[in-house]
Design a protein around this nucleic acid. Structure first.
Lengths: 160, 160
DNA sequence: TTGCTGACCATGATTTCCCATGATATTCAA
DNA sequence: TTGAATATCATGGGAAATCATGGTCAGCAA
């Protein structure tokens, strides 16, 4: 069973706001033994939706619990994350209804672009994504050395 | 059990996009106790696919988690690596379906060239590979001394 | 009513699964 | 060491399941 959200897909959003969650993503949720999906606006305010399963949602809740309540930080995070999150059940064909506020936030009308990001995934307006893609490629290229790819950063790869 | 990806092979891509993963490569995956393969476009954007097993994929995820999220670097790496990675299960005859986007990227139509690279391997359009091979030989020849062959202990492996 | 939601059914296009085959490779015994 | 018996490998094809998508209809609220 798949462990990480990976790959991308652009799916249609129908007149009722329904979108198919890409099959590989559903398999990750399934692996968590869950068929609900959590969507939250990207916390820094960019026009992107962040998505994940219950497992990750629980982790977020756990981190919050470690914070001191009745502080502005706790307040802000609790409200922005949990206050704006939607827990959406997948229907029997693997679709969710994308809440109107998320369509507004992202500018999504009839197409939604899904991007896997390991423990989470994102939903973008395809146009926004394409507009930023070239720059992301450049930034990624300039930062390869942050990942244990083939350089010496890949410390424990077996060879001395 | 084999530990590194080595050797090369050129295999057919059938009408359904299926390719046999070279048997020696399968043995490396088997050694990791896994039968899924991860493919990612080469990060600098050349028309090459990078492949490896779940073990290496986990390491990539782990390094990401150590980075500061919501930075352009994190974003770019997450989207370009995980967003474009495919986790592909091998079928019972050791084949995968090479995703269309990878066939497009590399220009692969009916033949795929596999090249072992120790901890990862690459998939090339055979023509692209052949076209660049002579130059790679020259570059390798000019840099033999960078490898710590027997008798050359402590050779300089390049400083940060 | 009018409009929205959710449950259910329908469908074409993949994609996956399963079985089959010829070409090497490998094993093992004489 | 040679040759026959046995695996392994790369490849092909058809049937069955999955996927993304669309539509209908009943319930419920405004």
């Amino acid at each position: 069973m798949l462990k990480f959200f990976s790959s991308s897909a652009t799916n249609k959003v129908d007149a009722k706001g329904r979108v198919s969650i890409p099959a590989p993503f559903r398999k990750v949720l399934q692996g968590e033994g869950s068929s609900v999906l959590v969507l939250v606006p990207e916390i820094t305010g960019r026009p992107i939706i962040e998505g994940f399963g219950e497992a990750h949602f629980n982790k977020l809740a756990a981190s919050l619990e470690e914070m001191n309540p009745y502080t502005p930080e706790y307040d802000a995070l609790a409200n922005m994350v949990f206050g704006e999150a939607h827990q959406l059940p997948l229907d029997d064909t693997g679709r969710i209804v994308l809440p109107q506020e998320f369509r507004d936030l992202t500018g999504i009308t009839d197409l939604a672009h899904f991007v896997g990001r390991a423990n989470t995934f994102q939903i973008w307006n395809p146009e926004t994504y394409n507009a930023g893609r070239a720059e992301m490629r450049e930034t990624a290229k300039a930062n390869v050395d942050k990942l244990p790819w083939a350089g010496k950063r890949g410390a424990d790869r077996g060879a001395p």
